[in-house]
Write a protein that binds this DNA or RNA. Structure first.
Lengths: 167, 167
DNA sequence: ATTAAGTTTCAATATTTTTTGAAAGTTTAA
DNA sequence: TTAAACTTTCAAAAAATATTGAAACTTAAT
């Protein structure tokens, strides 16, 4: 496989992965392009490479910047703005985990807590609702905590958790 | 909050969560409904509760069964088929992790491996492509392994990993 | 203050995804 | 074997989502 083929394969795979995860194709592809580019790219560069419109490029770059995984960079003496992606994979994972937790997981956890906290009324259906949403709450809350600890490389957390388990 | 309100809140939240994760709304809502139902439900029951068509219900029940988190159940003497969901949250997590890994994560890992394995040609762009996709490959492969071990409750794995770290 | 270079916004359009509903298919009982 | 009860399929319609492109906006140099 030659460079161009590998590059296209990576960009399109990353693009469809995005769709699958609630991030749109253009956004994921722009990220992919910047991720493997040794140089900062201008808006023109990105539009040309990916064959997408100026508006689309602008909107999705904004979103990537909101996620904290792409940054603006200005070359001295040039009017145009350039874009670079976060290049460290740990930092990328940390940032993505943080944003997904904040935008998607936390709100669901909040609802699960509310719903599982309703008053028992003695009926089987209420009991089941409480039991099952409580189970999901516990799972989601644990998973969220764990994920954040792991990507934040809180090595110590693992130790502490284990000590608790052993005691 | 009363039962009906809590129920609706749960179903609609679970439904939008689905959309966000590449599972369609109807599929997620059917799952939510079965998850909190103390009784098996028929197709009619589901259609009525969620106001969705027969076709939609049938297709999405099939998908839930493919995911291994909903099962058919026949009541003796009745023609109609009833549906129940997996009720154990651990088993649900295991099954979802397994399917997502198989459908989404593994194929991406495969592409990352291919792309990061291309031959160096001395150019900066090729070097960057290899370096950056290799980093993603390592991350994705580790995350996938870890997730599966955790939901499969391979308690021993944690011990083994720690021993390796200590040595 | 004017202009040119560059960026953002957003209504209109295109694309993709989901849903419907009716016809075709299946299964069981008589 | 027929018919009734029920389920599945799939083409068409609807809904949701993404994309375009041109006008509005911003910024910086003259």
């Amino acid at each position: 496989m030659k460079y161009d083929e590998a590059k296209n394969k990576f960009i399109s795979t990353w693009g469809s992965l995005g769709t699958l995860w609630g991030i749109n194709k253009a956004m994921a592809q722009i990220h992919a392009l910047l991720w493997i580019s040794p140089e900062p790219l201008s808006m023109e560069d990105i539009m040309e490479e990916l064959h997408i419109s100026r508006g689309n490029t602008s909107m999705n770059l904004r979103q990537l910047m909101d996620w904290g995984i792409v940054f603006k960079e200005s070359k001295p003496g040039e009017r145009k703005e350039y874009f670079v992606s976060e290049k460290d994979v740990q930092e990328l994972a940390r940032q993505v985990a943080k944003e997904r937790s904040r935008r998607e997981i936390k709100p669901v956890i909040k609802v699960l807590k509310e719903v599982s906290g309703i008053e028992m009324d003695g009926s089987a259906k209420t009991e089941e609702l409480i039991k099952q949403t409580k189970a999901l709450y516990d799972l989601a809350d644990n998973a969220d905590t764990m994920m954040n600890k792991i990507v934040n490389q809180e090595a110590n957390w693992i130790t502490k958790t284990l000590i608790k388990l052993i005691k």
